[in-house]
């Protein structure tokens, strides 16, 4: 049977002022609304009734939030509605932040990248084998917290409201790269806005995923100059197409003006409820190889993974170190591995 979406109204405000007005009105009317940008993550969830909404608000008429600008201090200001394909193809991004352009080209499929946005990828819903299913499938296992049920099938002892209540895993490809780049998010609320560093944005839960407040809109992603940081991103996926990362590893090496490595940075996606990242100083004595070993051990130890994926959890965990070392080799630091 065709999976049809029904039961909600559709709004498509033209421009930021119209969006602000609409959100104010919806807030006053206390109507449950959902913001949709590219919708490539949202539509399957609506079709499969993993979430319900009274009003679907398309952001695609808000042209102010699309596009890429270079600020005078070298910061890239990327509208949250900028399509991933545009991020990947942008000469500005390719020149200033090649790792971001590269990772944008690794998300989903070409058609998805033509529609999905950078903001949407940072907000992509966490996934779980018990949630991302059809209604029929979810009636077989009792509905879990994330779909308004009262159990977690992954951690049976989980309690609603006590974080982490949900172990749905984080799957954004772009987040780890933007984390290492110290990206900031500009969040719009009413007439105001606030800036939140990406590293403080995510929360340790598959449902209460981030600090975005109801009615708040992700407006821009600000990426400061890389400052000598070179990043490699690779993902563990069965296929070189379509798949979400079973594990995604961004590895960065920061070099000073003389080209000497000063910092090793690692960020992970695909495991656990939120992206994780670490920085390790490479100055002051410790041999880089030891730092790399320490970083891998730390990462492997810190992540919580469950049997939620095509790949067994132990394998995904074991691949962290492998991917870190391979990333370093691609960055020309094979000697450390």
């Amino acid at each position: 049977m065709t999976t049809r979406m029904t039961g909600f109204d559709f709004e498509r405000p033209a421009g930021l002022p119209a969006l602000r007005g609409l959100l104010a009105r919806l807030g006053k009317e206390q109507r449950r609304f959902t913001l949709a940008a590219g919708g490539t993550d949202l539509m399957p969830q609506l079709k499969q009734q993993q979430l319900a909404t009274e009003v679907l608000v398309s952001l695609n008429g808000v042209g102010e939030l699309a596009g890429i600008e270079l600020a005078s201090d070298g910061t890239l200001r990327i509208g949250a509605l900028t399509r991933l394909a545009e991020v990947a193809e942008s000469p500005l991004v390719r020149e200033r932040q090649p790792a971001l352009a590269a990772v944008a080209a690794r998300v989903g499929s070409p058609q998805i990248r033509n529609r999905a946005t950078l903001g949407g990828n940072l907000l992509v819903n966490n996934r779980c084998v018990y949630v991302n299913q059809s209604p029929l499938n979810r009636t077989v296992h009792a509905p879990c917290f994330k779909v308004d049920g009262d159990v977690c099938h992954i951690v049976k002892s989980a309690v609603r409201g006590k974080l982490p209540q949900c172990q749905a895993r984080f799957v954004s490809d772009t987040a780890p790269v933007l984390l290492l780049l110290d990206a900031r998010l500009v969040l719009l609320r009413g007439r105001g806005e606030r800036r939140v560093p990406l590293r403080r944005f995510y929360r340790n839960d598959g449902m209460e995923r981030n600090v975005l407040k109801p009615g708040e809109v992700l407006g821009w992603i600000e990426v400061p100059p890389a400052g000598g940081l070179r990043i490699d991103y690779d993902k563990l996926a069965v296929r070189n197409a379509l798949d979400f990362p079973s594990l995604g590893v961004a590895v960065g090496v920061r070099e000073d003006e003389r080209g000497e490595p000063v910092e090793l940075a690692v960020a992970l996606t695909g495991l656990g409820t939120h992206p994780l990242h670490w920085r390790f100083a490479l100055v002051g004595g410790a041999a880089p190889a030891a730092v790399v070993a320490q970083a891998c051990a730390r990462a492997e130890k810190s992540v919580t993974t469950y049997q939620q994926d095509f790949f067994p959890r132990d394998y995904r965990k074991k691949m962290i170190g492998t991917f870190v070392r391979r990333g370093l080799r691609r960055l020309g630091r094979g000697a450390w591995t």
Partner: peptide
């Protein structure tokens, strides 16, 4: 899982792409 097909989709049932 418990008799239900848990990967009933082209995303989770992995058929090779052109790259493979």
């Amino acid at each position: 899982y418990d008799g239900v097909v848990q990967n009933a989709s082209f995303l989770e049932y992995k058929i090779p792409s052109a790259f493979e």
